[in-house]
């Protein structure tokens, strides 16, 4: 009941809001939706199976570059290209997952970090194809440039992502994800193949990053090694951590709040990254359930007496 109470007006708001926004804030909303996709899909692997992947931004880069380069070099339309990009990202996800998930958490983190770096080096140096740090200009989805169209495209895809994630988390598989997180040994002894479950979650999450990256690239129409950078990775991680890892709403809230906030504090240059870092550090240390956790606690305290 409570859920429909907030979600119905929210849906109306998201549909009618763009008609009242300036071009600039429409842009902010589009970027926020990109981060909603990124943070929520990262949350699937980090928040629900307890594996920290540092390659989420790298997978977004794979999606963006595969689709962008197909469009530039062979003229494949972006609509098709992003699916190829997503497919490649999911293949790499299976590969990496298979390679290191059986080795334990530290190895996955190290390898994904290494993978990000390899990708960055290749994109930077193969500048005949990728134009490296100079940036590759790629076509957009629409022949007529319109922020409104992009907004609705991003809104629809985010909604689909969130729907899939919600169903996954609340399915039997989602239960086994959480079983793996809470007690690996117990999960294993109750017949759950913990490694397969983790690889599966990692692959789904990587594929989603690949698609989000493809959309983002064709929206910016300029892709550079900044998309698969660790700085971008940090933003996604900070959004999930600050919003609340392991909760469905957390990363969504985190993505909107941080992106909108960063527009306000951008005048202070790079320091907004430092600020987000300090906040994320404080949250991870003192309130590991993030904003959602804090809000829930407040709510309960108020309701109980």
């Amino acid at each position: 009941m409570m859920k429909t109470w907030i979600s119905l007006p929210l849906i109306f708001l998201l549909i009618f809001l763009p008609f009242f926004l300036s071009q600039y804030w429409l842009h902010v909303m589009i970027i926020s939706l990109f981060y909603v996709m990124m943070a929520s899909s990262w949350n699937l692997i980090a928040g629900y199976t307890g594996q920290i992947s540092f390659a989420h931004a790298a997978f977004a880069g794979v999606g963006a570059y595969v689709s962008g380069m197909l469009a530039v070099n062979i003229g494949i339309p972006p609509w098709l290209g992003i699916f190829v990009g997503t497919f490649v990202a999911s293949l790499l996800g299976v590969g990496l997952g298979y390679l290191c998930i059986r080795m334990g958490g530290i190895y996955l983190s190290l390898t994904t970090l290494g993978f990000s770096e390899i990708l960055r080096i290749i994109i930077t140096n193969e500048d005949r194809w990728t134009r490296g740090t100079m940036g590759l200009q790629i076509p957009g989805f629409f022949t007529e440039y319109s922020k409104m169209s992009y907004y609705f495209l991003f809104l629809i895809v985010s909604a689909v992502f969130l729907f899939i994630l919600y169903r996954l988390i609340h399915s039997e598989m989602g239960l086994s994800f959480r079983a793996v997180l809470n007690d690996e040994l117990a999960a294993a002894s109750s017949g759950i193949d913990t490694i397969r479950v983790r690889i599966l979650a990692f692959t789904i999450s990587s594929a989603m990053a690949g698609m989000a990256g493809g959309l983002y690239g064709h929206y910016l129409m300029l892709i550079t090694p900044d998309i698969p950078s660790l700085g971008q990775m940090f933003l996604v991680l900070a959004m999930a951590v600050i919003g609340g890892m392991g909760s469905f709403i957390g990363p969504i809230l985190g993505a909107f709040v941080l992106e909108v906030l960063s527009e306000y504090i951008r005048i202070y240059g790079e320091y907004h990254v430092l600020l987000f870092g300090l906040v994320a550090l404080g949250v991870a240390r003192f309130a590991p359930e993030g904003m959602v956790g804090v809000i829930k606690k407040r709510w309960k305290v108020k309701e109980s007496p």
């Binding site: 409570m2 007006p9 708001l13 809001l17 926004l21 300036s22 909107f256 909108v260 809000i295 709510w299």
Partner: peptide, 20 residues
């Protein structure tokens, strides 16, 4: 929880549209 989320969103939207 809904109320808080709602008011955060409202504040965000207000600040977006009333650009002085």
């Amino acid at each position: 929880m809904g109320r808080i989320v709602g008011s955060v969103l409202l504040a965000v939207i207000l600040s977006m549209t009333s650009w002085a």
